[in-house]
Design a protein around this nucleic acid. Structure first.
Lengths: 133, 133
DNA sequence: CAGGATATACGAAGTTATTCGTTGCTATCG
DNA sequence: CGATAGCAACGAATAACTTCGTATATCCTG
């Protein structure tokens, strides 16, 4: 049993994840756009967002186009892969390595799934069952 | 959109979560047991585990029986509730608030679900569909 | 061109998390 | 009894994350 997070890989921190979410949602953004979206008036200051995004750039979490005065940032890691990593980590740390257990919890806590979503989930279940023999 | 973590509640940290996992798995434990299980020979030292668990006690994350020389610790927060909290947080931060999306990802990345587990998931789906319809 | 608004860069402070060394206590073993 | 081992407590060092103040450059507007 070794549920510790590997230190070799760079995990986006909480603040970084928030920024990535904005970049994934809206595509390429300036610091200002991210700041407005995320922190608005009451939240952290502009330079905080700037600093975070500079650090993210140095870490390789985002790409940057600095040909204009206001640099344009875009995510350098895919949403999918990031979701997958966090999911796997959580399954490991909280659900004894069993994704199914996690799914059951997630569905159990979410009775409001739409008919369309349920259909999708069923379809995926069928696919898994057939492939798995 | 405000995907930031609320600061009012105490989130177990990474190291704390590892300890909780041991306590959930094995029930009440001494510091030594937790240390052996989690860090063994190469990992962090004994006093590190001790300190962490003392902090967790001061935070109310664990209860402690100090009637014996070697204190006995047990988790003060349920595994279920913790799973739920982390799950909800992740859905919010990484899946745009859609648990179904998360479920799809989790299932998609886990083709090795057992027949028993699939059955369970199906049953839950039926229950949801009936109640929700 | 002067002044204001807006941009980056940088340094540093404040906070939290993790780790360990040391101390002092208690039990046990010879 | 004296030595040794195991325990809790505490302080402090280190590292990581977040935040902001300030300096400096650039653009726009009158």
């Amino acid at each position: 049993m070794s549920p510790r997070r590997s230190a070799e890989v760079t995990w986006p921190t909480d603040a970084e994840l928030n920024i990535l979410q904005v970049l994934w949602e809206r595509g390429a953004c300036t610091v200002r756009e991210v700041h407005e979206t995320l922190y608005g008036n009451d939240g952290a200051g502009y330079t905080t967002a700037l600093k975070l995004m500079q650090i993210m750039h140095s870490k390789g979490l985002v790409d940057r186009d600095d040909s204009q005065r206001a640099h344009i940032y875009r995510s350098a890691i895919s949403r999918q892969r990031t979701q997958k990593r966090f999911l796997a980590d959580m399954v490991q740390r909280l659900f004894n390595g069993s994704p199914s257990q996690m799914v059951l919890h997630a569905l159990g806590n979410h009775p409001g799934a739409s008919r369309e979503e349920l259909k999708e989930i069923r379809a995926l279940l069928n696919k898994i069952e057939i492939e798995g023999g």
